[in-house]
């Protein structure tokens, strides 16, 4: 194991920060005309669990409607960052602010949604009722059914509306969870390794679905993943987190829809991977 990592060292040297520069041009403007996404600014963000300092000062600006992937080794703090953005954990120091011209009161809880690795569907509610949960405070409104059905159609499961979650496959459950996250038309959607538990083929079709709904709806997407190829296939920008800080900020400048396995993406994936591995080597 050690020798294998050593022999990969020369390659790692090549993939220095300067190497990313050719790709790091301005992101192509192919957002929908008016993006519904919220921009997001993070300053000096810190978070510790006991003595373990997980985030050690993160500064980050995400423009409205951008698709950002966050990669890193397990335990690097990427999921913690996502949970802080989604408001699931308390911030120790620093700030996260949404929007520029928006006052905080302009941002509703329904504007920010999270999708987890587990679908977290209510087993005792039928598929449609599970999607309706995503409406938040609008659950009681008259058009709740119609909106839920529309979201279900978007994820291609309109015919499963009256099924129990237990009869669905893993990929279908995750699509219901996506429908539930989408139904309130969020402006920021945070994904915590949403495809981690799926098989390879289902994962690819889910990636296509994620890309499609993101392009249709124009929310700001933040995807935490340990799969670097997934990150470069989906994101405009890949953040590499190491030891609680953003170590690299890589812009992916390939056109959409993306060609899976194209030389450009594969090259980028290779250099990010070797970075992650070289960090392993240094420690």
């Amino acid at each position: 194991m050690q020798t294998a990592l050593r022999t990969s060292l020369p390659e790692t040297e090549l993939a220095s920060r300067a190497n990313f520069a050719p790709h790091a041009r301005v992101v192509r403007e192919e957002r929908p005309a008016q993006t519904t996404g919220l921009p997001l600014s993070i300053r000096g963000l810190r978070k510790s669990f006991g003595d373990n300092e997980v985030l050690r000062g993160v500064d980050l600006h995400i423009p409205a409607g951008q698709f950002v992937a966050i990669v890193g080794k397990s335990g690097c703090g990427k999921s913690t960052l996502l949970r802080l953005i989604a408001g699931l954990d308390k911030i120790d120091a620093g700030s996260i602010s949404f929007g520029q011209d928006f006052e905080p009161r302009d941002i509703q809880p329904e504007d920010i949604r999270v999708m987890f690795q587990e679908p977290r569907l209510l087993p005792w509610a039928r598929v449609l009722a599970n999607v309706e949960v995503g409406l938040g405070r609008d659950r009681a409104s008259g058009d709740a059914h119609a909106r839920a059905e529309k979201a279900l159609t978007e994820v291609g499961l309109a015919d499963k509306r009256d099924q129990w979650p237990s009869v669905l496959s893993g990929g279908q459950k995750q699509r219901v969870a996506l429908g539930r996250a989408l139904v309130s038309r969020p402006r920021v959607l945070a994904f915590d390794e949403p495809l981690g538990a799926l098989d390879a083929l289902t994962r690819i079709s889910m990636q296509r679905l994620l890309e499609r709904v993101w392009r249709d709806q124009g929310f700001t997407a933040i995807l935490v993943t340990h799969d670097v190829s997934e990150a470069v296939a989906l994101a405009d920008r890949v953040l590499v987190i190491e030891e609680g800080r953003i170590a690299h900020d890589v812009v992916v400048n390939a056109g959409r829809p993306r060609q899976r396995g194209s030389a450009e993406l594969a090259g980028l994936e290779g250099s990010i991977l070797s970075h992650l591995l070289s960090a392993d080597d240094r420690t």
Partner: peptide, 24 residues
């Protein structure tokens, strides 16, 4: 995890009980 999900999606305590805790 379901309780956390319910809270994220803005369920009140009553709703959380009726829709998540009691059926569970």
């Amino acid at each position: 995890q379901l309780i956390e999900m319910g809270r994220i999606y803005g369920m009140t305590d009553g709703e959380l009980f009726r829709r998540v805790i009691f059926p569970g």
